[in-house]
Amino acid sequence: MARKWTFTDRRRPGRPGTRRPVKALIVRMARENPTWGHRRIRGELARLGYTIAASTVWEILHAAGIDPAPRRAGPTWRQFLAAHAHAMIACDFLVAETVLLKRLHVLIFIEHGTRRLHLAGVTAHPTGAWTAQQARNLAMDLVDRLTELRFLIHDRDPLFTSAFKAVFEAEGMGVVTTLPRTPRMNAICERVIGTLRRELLDRILILNERHLVFVLREYLIPYNGHRPHQSRQQRPPDIATQPSHDVADLSDQRTIRRKPVVAGMISEYHHAA
């Protein structure tokens, strides 16, 4: 039987009120679903067992300063990213300096849903044609995964030419260009660039372009196959589910083995055989 909520009865002393929780729930539904009007919210409440008049829902939304659905602002950028994370990939350029002060440009891609990192290419003289060719190479490598991706995010760098965008548009993907001076719109890619600097490039001397490619490819192996990610419940990008283990006894540290990788820059830990 549906539970009826009234807003006109006074609460008795010591009796928990119902008005505040219902108001909070209505406001929450409106903010989490920008396209829902007061009648749609009333219907969702009815499914939960809360019977309430549509006019009361409208009054609560009006008092909270929330406009009707047709005039309400659309989803925020964070809501958009959360809803489409599994279908998004982002790219950006990373700059590295060699021991001879030669500047190298690295084009990287990262999938939002899995956090899988891809190295597209390294060059000292990036051009629009070079960037487009790296996009074609990546599309060939991801031929089976491109069907799951729907959006590409990148900044307004002139190296991302129309030819570069056409590669992904031909695969049915939409290209989203970030606003000027808004790095947070490409926050996941910016964050992985910071990770690459802190964990690798700031701790090793790069000799030349060939050396940088070798080091980055070596880093991708533990990054995609071993490194835990908070957004994936501590799972690496290449592991769909976290394997179950018995509770380990850490009192004997000899059962834990350290494996240095990427010239000793990165450490991996495993149970001894």
Score class of each variant (00 low, 15 high):
residue 5 W to V: 13
residue 6 T to S: 14
residue 7 F to M: 10
residue 8 T to V: 13
residue 12 R to E: 14
residue 12 R to N: 10
residue 19 R to P: 05
residue 20 R to E: 15
residue 21 P to N: 03
residue 21 P to F: 02
residue 22 V to Q: 04
residue 22 V to Y: 00
residue 23 K to F: 09
residue 23 K to Y: 09
residue 28 R to D: 15
residue 31 R to M: 13
residue 33 N to G: 06
residue 33 N to L: 03
residue 34 P to W: 06
residue 35 T to W: 09
residue 37 G to A: 07
residue 38 H to Q: 09
residue 38 H to F: 12
residue 41 I to F: 01
residue 43 G to H: 12
residue 47 R to I: 01
residue 48 L to N: 03
residue 49 G to C: 05
residue 50 Y to N: 02
residue 51 T to A: 09
residue 52 I to W: 01
residue 54 A to D: 10
residue 61 L to I: 04
residue 62 H to T: 12
residue 66 I to S: 02
residue 66 I to D: 04
residue 67 D to L: 14
residue 73 A to F: 07
residue 74 G to V: 06
residue 82 A to N: 15
residue 84 H to Y: 05
residue 85 A to E: 14
residue 85 A to L: 13
residue 85 A to H: 14
residue 86 H to D: 15
residue 88 M to I: 15
residue 94 L to Q: 12
residue 94 L to Y: 03
residue 97 E to L: 10
residue 99 V to R: 14
residue 101 L to P: 06
residue 105 H to L: 01
residue 106 V to Q: 01
residue 106 V to C: 04
residue 109 F to Y: 13
residue 110 I to D: 00
residue 110 I to H: 00
residue 115 R to M: 02
residue 116 R to M: 08
residue 116 R to E: 10
residue 116 R to C: 04
residue 117 L to D: 06
residue 118 H to Q: 01
residue 119 L to Q: 09
residue 120 A to M: 02
residue 122 V to L: 03
residue 123 T to W: 01
residue 125 H to F: 05
residue 126 P to L: 05
residue 130 W to D: 04
residue 131 T to L: 07
residue 132 A to C: 05
residue 132 A to D: 04
residue 135 A to K: 02
residue 135 A to N: 07
residue 137 N to R: 12
residue 142 L to H: 08
residue 145 R to E: 15
residue 145 R to A: 12
residue 146 L to Q: 02
residue 147 T to Y: 09
residue 148 E to A: 14
residue 149 L to F: 06
residue 150 R to K: 15
residue 152 L to Y: 00
residue 153 I to E: 00
residue 154 H to S: 14
residue 155 D to W: 05
residue 156 R to E: 08
residue 157 D to W: 01
residue 160 F to E: 01
residue 164 F to L: 10
residue 164 F to I: 05
residue 167 V to G: 02
residue 170 A to N: 14
residue 171 E to V: 00
residue 172 G to S: 02
residue 175 V to H: 05
residue 177 T to C: 10
residue 183 P to L: 08
residue 183 P to A: 06
residue 184 R to H: 13
residue 186 N to A: 06
residue 186 N to R: 03
residue 187 A to T: 07
residue 189 C to H: 00
residue 190 E to Q: 06
residue 190 E to N: 07
residue 191 R to D: 11
residue 199 E to L: 08
residue 203 R to C: 07
residue 203 R to V: 03
residue 204 I to A: 03
residue 204 I to P: 00
residue 205 L to K: 11
residue 206 I to L: 03
residue 209 E to V: 05
residue 210 R to S: 11
residue 210 R to V: 06
residue 216 L to Q: 01
residue 216 L to F: 04
residue 220 L to C: 08
residue 220 L to P: 09
residue 230 Q to K: 10
residue 231 S to G: 07
residue 233 Q to G: 06
residue 235 R to Y: 00
residue 236 P to D: 02
residue 237 P to R: 07
residue 241 T to N: 12
residue 242 Q to M: 14
residue 245 H to T: 10
residue 246 D to S: 12
residue 246 D to R: 14
residue 253 Q to L: 15
residue 254 R to N: 13
residue 257 R to Q: 14
residue 259 K to F: 11
residue 261 V to Y: 00
residue 263 A to Y: 13
residue 264 G to S: 09
residue 268 E to I: 11
residue 270 H to Y: 15
residue 271 H to S: 13
residue 273 A to I: 09
